[in-house]
Design a protein around this nucleic acid. Sequence first.
DNA 1: TAGTGGTCTAGACCACCTG
DNA 2: AGGTGGTCTAGACCACTAG
Lengths: 242, 242
Amino acid sequence: MAARYIEIKKSIQDDILSHRYQLGEKIPSERELAVQYGVTRVTLQKAMHILEQEGFIERIHGKGMYVTKVIEDNVYMLNSGTGDSILGFSREFGQQAKITSQLVQHEQIQVPQWVAQQLEMQPEQRVHFIRRIRLIDGVPVLVEDSWINSDVIETIPGSVLEHGSLYEYIEKYTGKKIKFYNSVIEGDLFNEELAALLSISEGLPMLKVSGVTKLEDGKAFNFSCSYNRADKFKIKNSWVGK
Amino acid sequence: MAARYIEIKKSIQDDILSHRYQLGEKIPSERELAVQYGVTRVTLQKAMHILEQEGFIERIHGKGMYVTKVIEDNVYMLNSGTGDSILGFSREFGQQAKITSQLVQHEQIQVPQWVAQQLEMQPEQRVHFIRRIRLIDGVPVLVEDSWINSDVIETIPGSVLEHGSLYEYIEKYTGKKIKFYNSVIEGDLFNEELAALLSISEGLPMLKVSGVTKLEDGKAFNFSCSYNRADKFKIKNSWVGK
DNA sequence: TAGTGGTCTAGACCACCTG
DNA sequence: AGGTGGTCTAGACCACTAG
């Protein structure tokens, strides 16, 4: 049973995405919506603040709430700090395009020093190292490397890496929700190795996103690093100043 | 008079930055802090949720709140969706390094079509076009282009562009706070023109950040686009999944 | 003046973690 | 069992926008 404000947020998000509320249109006031959904204003506000932060609406003091005029784009958006999940490629894009994965490498290794630091592990412990290529409609667009604490997940079925969502599997396997922390975005150029994996030229621009993933109990279990073709991806960064 | 939860947030942030709360240390419970600050838990939670989102603390259900172990970096961080402001380069970096600006161009022009769209302007209206170079300790690190609706700000003193914060000036001039919306991060390569401005080689990697700035009454007044040397900047993206 | 979002109170109950 | 964060109620007053 999800929290009420999450349900309300999703309900209104649906109303926006399905154009029941038109772009730029004023939506009902907090007090009206609170009555509609049978909650207090405080609860309704929690939902609306999330919608604002994710860029669906604008809240203007004294005037009301308006559906944001959205500009469509011909590149794929990596949602960063917004949307229901940065948690896995397939969840984000599964609905708008045909996503496939190609497993390049999967082995258990002793944890590299810099990974051990990120995951708060001891040097003798082991991690899964996983390298996958993601394809949109058959075109390879990014390489993703993951280091996953073997103590959290002993075995990872090949079928999950090839066709499923790793994060979904982990949430089911552990029974815990996932949190992202401190992800970092960098720009760089594709080197020979990565370019070869994507069948592109060395020296093309890349967006690199790396970060630690934790379980809701605070346990860090994954360090991941994705190398994205900069001509295929933008990162949306909806944010509202204070 | 700022809101109480903003004051509390800043107070605890100071306690963390000054190491009165050590890295990784557990901080007092919500109920304790609420008493300390003389507010209810709801108000205190608003402060703590912001600190969590900005990456200062981790909140773990049933256990408590902990100061995040921070990894220091030898590159400059552009805060994106976090910190007190993405609002202007000088505010972000003024304390850790010597920031200077170099005004390359400033003229009033008829609003270009794509800018008019972003700022909801008519084709015959005018904008300030401003191109500045930013230097850290004397080294040029980024180019920033801004298009500012002339109806919002008629004149912009040269001294502001050379030495001050444009956003601070606008907040003072209009008497309104500033909001950012829908900023987008892209990766690209420096072309000849931009590379020349920074005295670097063409083809080096770049992080491009663009977005619209609005006043708190919803009025869009500025479209800006910054071209950052990818070897000098990372973008921190503190975020907590739901 | 009426309506809107922004903030805050003083409680309550639940879900989770640890001893 | 006791402490922690997560959610929610039913109010209240303030600040801002509009006609």
